[in-house]
Design a binder for these strands. Structure first.
Lengths: 204, 204
DNA sequence: TGCTTATGAATGAAGG
DNA sequence: CCTTCATTCATAAGCA
């Protein structure tokens, strides 16, 4: 049976058992990291590691193999992806902040709507940050990470704070529904029923 | 009972808290597109748009936010999924074809309609422009200036990614179809129950 | 009301 | 580094 962490994240029962070995029809296709592996990788990432060198990758991979099957390339990809997605996420969240205004305006539902939105938003940007006080994640990517990381025995992952394990997504943004307490102005409303979408410029 | 906003977005108190109320890590539900949003997205898809650029995603998201809460990542995912599933479906059909004589009448109704957008879609997708804030600058990296500071030769050049990968592919011994015989290589453990990861060595 | 389906979200792996 | 694809996880919706 599957197991769920406090965060609701499902941990499949047949991790790291090897390819054909498991009775649970585990597909050999791709690496399926154990939660411990993810935890360690995340920890390293949070500590500042972004683009590990080949040597580092080897070491990490070697160490993580304690928790289950893993190859160096998995570690390599993991960092690539994690870095890229964090960046992407950050980029998107920033832009989305501006757009949310339109929605709020709309929820009144009998809109006369607007043609051009000159919006003045200013607050609220500080909401979208995860509580990582420690690490502002500078743009300069490669810093040195000098630290000794203690890995934990297998059974220790049950601790409820595995919640933190997920820096999950930009859900921060979603959750503003109740306390949307920022100011916005919409100026220059004219007369149309809905915005129109013109992508012609982009198509060429 | 659950509660719905005007946009159809479900705010449910599930899983200990709901959006604003909970403390750490409460996940609110996922994006639930309004029918108008789906309609527009589908229309765009049918008109041939498959992989919108970041810029397009922004525009679309921005416009669709009129109809309800939406983030650009939703748009991103939507196209990703829609495209993937269309492909998947097509593949499935192909397999079915080659596989056996199906009941002929069976699949007729779910023939993928993808190749025919002969219809004039004219909704309101291309009627107006909105302030043409298009950036002539092709890349969006206006705020990032990487590459400028390579302080130390410590961590290898980023460029060697492919090279790295090649190296990594050397630890192929896993994932044999039949014998899942991978070996843990734990080094230097005497009797501790977990390995220790020390990256300091890597930096010298 | 419990199971099935549809689909949003995530992420491993590449390609370029 | 960026983008894309395949696959999987998770959950809301739909149905029997």
């Amino acid at each position: 049976m599957d197991e769920y962490t406090a965060s609701g994240y499902c941990i499949r029962a047949s991790r790291g058992g090897g390819c054909g070995g498991g009775g649970t029809g585990t597909k050999c296709g791709r690496w399926n990291p154990t939660s411990e592996q993810v935890k360690v990788l995340t920890e390293l990432f949070r500590s500042g590691l972004r683009t590990p060198s080949t040597d580092q990758i080897q070491k990490i991979s070697s160490q993580l193999s304690f928790y289950g099957k893993i190859e160096s390339k998995n570690v390599f990809y993991w960092f690539q992806n994690h870095k890229a997605r964090e960046r992407q996420k950050r980029r998107r969240v920033l832009v989305d902040d501006g757009n949310e205004i339109m929605h709020l305006h709309h929820t009144n539902n009998l809109v006369s709507s607007t043609k051009r939105f000159d919006l003045v938003f200013n607050v609220d940007l500080m909401l979208t940050d995860f509580g990582d006080e420690k690490n502002p994640v500078s743009e300069t990517d490669d810093q040195r990470v000098i630290e000794t990381l203690q890995l934990f025995p297998l059974n220790s992952l049950n601790d409820a704070d595995s919640e933190k394990l997920r820096l999950f997504s930009s859900d921060h943004n979603n959750c503003k529904e109740n306390n949307a307490s920022f100011t916005y102005n919409i100026i220059g409303t004219t007369e149309m029923d809905h915005p129109t979408l013109d992508l012609r410029l982009s198509f060429v």
